[in-house]
Every structure is written in C-alpha cells, then in structure tokens.
C-alpha cells in the first residue's frame, strides 16, 4: 500500500474563523474512505483544496508527493457537490470534452453507463432532469481510471433508488489500485462501502479509523458512533 495523500498541518482561514484547523493525516491507495462530518464542518473546504480550487492559509496537501496542480488534476477525478455542467452542451459533447482533457477517460465505458440509464447522447444537458444530470456527472467522473476519486456529497438530495445506483456505480468502477474519498453526512447509506472513516468537526480531524475496527471494537455501526461523537 503506497501513500496516496498526505495532509500536513492544513489550515484554511476565512477571516477569523478557521474552516480547517491544523489537519494532518495520510491515506493509502486501495481504500474507500468516508469523509464524515455535519454540514459546515469543513468537508467541502478540504475537498476544494485537494482539487486546487482553494489555496490553504497554511500547511499543505500532497497527492503522490505533489501539491495540487495540473499534474495532480490529471489523476484526481472530482465530483463537486453541485451540478457544474455547461448547459448548452449535449451529453455527447461533454463526454468528448472529458475524453479530450483526461487521458485516463474511457469514452466506451461512459456510453455504456449512459446507455444503461437510457440517456441519449444527443440530448442537451439542460434538457435532462436534475436526477439525470447528477447521474451524468457521476458517470463522467467514474469513467476515468484515476488514482483518486473525490466525491463530494454524491448521495445528498437523491432518492433511495438513485442512492443505490450511485453506490453500485462506485463499487462497479472501483479498482484496487485507486482510492475513493467520499464526503457525506448520510452515513448509514454508505458505511458498508467504506474501508476507513475520517470524522471532522469544526475543521478538526477527530477520528481516523478502519470501519471494521469500529464495528469489532465498539460493537456498533459507524452511524451510531458518528451520532455519539457529534452529539449536541
């Protein structure tokens, strides 16, 4: 297991409030990791820093030893928490766009998944329903052979059927050399897929543990432990 991600004293300050406070940890490759915390705990801030959309106030994050930049972006597949597709493109065009820029993108796999959902490649993105837009975003991300997949709240605000679809898509496209980082506050739906969890609260990392260890040592589900840790 090689080191994939390293965080060193990562801090992000917004004025006087710290969205992330001195976070340090490392992640290995070959894991599905849950980034768990209530809304506003700093999950999205962390993910944005990882993807180079925000710059940290101090400290640093390294992906395979490099700070976020063009070369890490080539191996990190990122699903933002909002729909980001430019509305004027067709499904086909956005697939071509991804294929052009990401060397690890498989057009074939993308069309296969779209086909299974019955989404026509000729359709305009703005004509898709909200649920299908989200699914297209997920398909685009999961059609890459990335080293690290970063999924920000992939199951928030989707119906249970779509939730199952998201989870099975993640499992079906997972490869053992890659890692997946999934941020969410809906733990019970996703905990069985996870190897490890990171709990963050108010920008602090409060727990990093294997989920099997949690179940074996505490005799409780991750969701229960989460509720205990974040009790108010």
């Amino acid at each position: 297991m090689s080191e994939l991600l390293r965080c060193e004293n990562l801090t992000k300050q917004y004025g006087k409030t710290a969205a992330l406070n001195n976070i340090s940890f490392t992640l290995e490759s070959g894991k599905i990791v849950g980034l768990l915390g209530p809304n506003g705990s700093g999950k999205t801030t962390f993910i944005k820093i990882l993807n180079g959309l925000l710059t940290p106030t101090s400290g640093a994050v390294y992906i395979e030893g490099e700070r976020p930049g063009p070369s890490t972006k080539a191996k990190v597949a990122y699903l933002p928490d909002n729909v980001y597709l430019n509305a004027w493109m067709t499904v086909e065009q956005i697939v071509a766009y991804f294929a052009d820029f990401y060397a690890d993108f498989s057009t074939e796999r993308a069309f296969e998944m779209l086909n299974r959902l019955g989404i026509s490649p000729k359709q305009k993105l703005k004509a898709l329903s909200k649920g299908n837009k989200e699914k297209v975003c997920l398909i685009l991300v999961m059609s890459r052979q990335a080293k690290l997949y970063v999924l920000d709240e992939p199951i928030a605000g989707v119906d249970p059927a779509a939730r199952d679809y998201v989870i099975s898509t993640i499992i079906n496209n997972y490869n053992p050399e890659a890692s997946v980082l999934i941020s969410t506050h809906l733990i019970s739906d996703i905990e069985q897929v996870l190897d490890e969890v990171l709990f963050i609260r108010d920008g602090h990392l409060v727990l990093k543990k294997s989920v099997e260890d949690i179940r074996a040592e505490e005799g409780k589900s991750v969701d229960e432990l989460f509720r205990e840790v974040f009790k108010w």
């Binding site: 993807n51 933002p80 909002n82 980001y84 597709l85 820029f101 990401y102």
Partner: peptide
Amino acid sequence: GEGYLTFTLPI
C-alpha cells in the same frame, strides 16, 4: 459553476 470543471482540468 463551470469553473469547477475548468479548474480541475490538467491545465
């Protein structure tokens, strides 16, 4: 919103 994609391209 498009910026999320634009700035995560390897460019």
